[in-house]
Amino acid sequence: MAFYDRRAADATAHAYRGQAMTRTSSAVHAKLLSQEMHSRAMLGNAQRVADARRRAECAIAALPVGATRGGAFSISLAEDPPYTATSMLLLGQHRQAETATHRVLTAFYPHGGAGCPENPSGYARTQLILGMALTGQGKLDQAHAAGSAALDSPRPVWPVVALAGRLDQALVQASANAPETRDYHQRYLTISGQPGRTRSMSVRAPSVTSR
């Protein structure tokens, strides 16, 4: 629970202890390494993040065939360990976050949102993470496109709306008066049920805990 509650120090400690209690050839061990990477990113320790990422990559490469599927502790595989994109985003490594997110989109959503009717939330969250990575590089037009693709997904659930709000904050911080920012902001207010709300020009930096 510490991982999902964003208690970074507790999440790191629990992930580390959990690794000692699990088989190194199991999906749960690899997932705990990925969670350690993410929690260390929340603490801002780039060197420890890189170390945890290397260990996660080695653990995933050593998994037996079929070990990644099914159950509460299954692991979804792309070219990078889970949570790589958000870990890079937390460290301010926006270009690396963009690259990792594109890999996730290629691996799991090769046909875009229309090709994943069973998981529109996952597709939307990935696009929003991409949008924040692009915003961090000043690519507002591409960030707007990614955010719009997310908002176009059917049945937006609370985690999607919350992450969409963080992209809204990031765009406002980057360039509050840009046409892309204004358009996305209005779309975000509509989807979040706040169509008449006025944008605040004083915002906090967005935080990320998703993939």
Rank of each mutant, 00 (worst) to 15 (best):
A20P: 00
R187S: 00
R182C: 06
V28Q: 14
V65M: 08
S39N: 09
G131K: 03
E57Y: 05
D5L: 15
R54H: 12
L140R: 13
P156W: 02
A52M: 07
Y83D: 09
Q173H: 06
L171C: 06
S200T: 11
A46Q: 12
K139I: 01
L33A: 13
P82L: 03
Q137H: 06
Q19M: 15
T106K: 14
Q96D: 15
H111G: 03
D10V: 13
L151T: 00
R197W: 05
P159W: 02
Q173K: 12
P179Q: 09
T84A: 13
S87N: 08
T181Y: 04
V203R: 15
L32W: 07
G115V: 07
V203H: 07
S153M: 15
G196Q: 12
P206M: 09
G193Q: 04
A97M: 10
G71Y: 03
A149P: 04
A114Y: 05
E36Q: 15
M201V: 07
T12M: 08
V104C: 04
G115A: 13
F3E: 14
A20N: 10
P156E: 07
S202W: 10
Q93T: 02
L32P: 01
A85C: 03
E79G: 15
R53D: 10
A67M: 12
L128D: 00
Q35R: 15
A2F: 10
N177S: 12
L32D: 05
